[in-house]
């Protein structure tokens, strides 16, 4: 089932074009990889997909509805789970509190939120002790798992991950990719943004972004 569609997406930083006429389709139950060289606009595209930025032209359709017409906060908190490259976790909170807060923001109802959060953390391989630890006291891989659990906390259809294996060792990379694979098998649409050929090879489909001519590297980098 097609869940996310990009129609003629254009984006530029000032007069410097970054994305032009991008047309991608994403379905549930599949793993996608958006690859490209540095400066090709991968992170910019991820920002557009996650609702943090608006395209200059074209439209993004979520389940057939124009994202621009949806409440951007509701879109971010309920419909799409984003795993940022630097995880963007609340460092003063514990792993389980991060997940629970995400549920609260999404408006998830129910009394056993803590138990659900613990289950999600267990699902990504964190035990109870790790779940109750402050995020800053967790390793990069563990933080990545917390970020994944947080993205899954409100059960979105789309999981978006920016360089999910960038800072991880080989073994952990494999474990993380296995989690994404299982999520796709559970019917989620998993979109990974990466420059790694290994990650691209592990996905069902890949979209390659080409660096547009005249694009200035520093500006795109600053924004991403």
């Amino acid at each position: 089932m097609e869940i996310l569609t990009l129609q003629n997406i254009c984006f530029s930083y000032g007069k410097v074009p970054v994305l032009k006429d991008v047309n991608y389709r994403f379905e549930t139950g599949k793993m996608y990889c958006i690859i490209g060289r540095s400066g090709a606009g991968k992170t910019t595209l991820l920002s557009l997909l996650s609702g943090l930025a608006k395209p200059d032209g074209g439209s993004i359709l979520y389940d057939g509805k124009d994202v621009a017409k949806l409440d951007k906060y509701a879109f971010r908190s309920k419909y799409i789970g984003v795993i940022f490259q630097s995880f963007n976790l609340l460092t003063k909170f514990t792993a389980v509190e991060n997940v629970m807060l995400s549920m609260d923001i999404a408006g998830v109802k129910g009394k056993n939120k803590r138990q659900r959060a613990m289950e999600l953390l267990a699902g990504v391989g964190l035990d109870e002790d790790e779940a109750n630890r402050r995020v800053l006291k967790l390793s990069g891989g563990q933080q990545q798992r917390v970020a994944i659990a947080r993205a899954l906390s409100y059960d979105p259809q789309i999981i978006l991950a920016d360089e999910p294996t960038g800072n991880l060792d080989g073994e952990t990379q494999k474990e993380i990719m296995d989690i994404f694979r299982s999520l796709a098998q559970q019917g989620k649409c998993v979109i990974l943004v990466s420059h790694s050929p290994e990650v691209a090879a592990a996905c069902d489909e890949k979209y390659e972004l080409q660096k547009l001519s005249g694009k200035k590297e520093p500006k795109e980098k600053a924004a991403s």
């Binding site: 996650s50 943090l52 906060y73 971010r76 908190s77 940022f84 963007n88 609340l90 807060l101 995400s102």
Partner: peptide, 9 residues
Amino acid sequence: GVLTAMGMK
């Protein structure tokens, strides 16, 4: 930044 990126108004 994190809270608003998570969808908190």
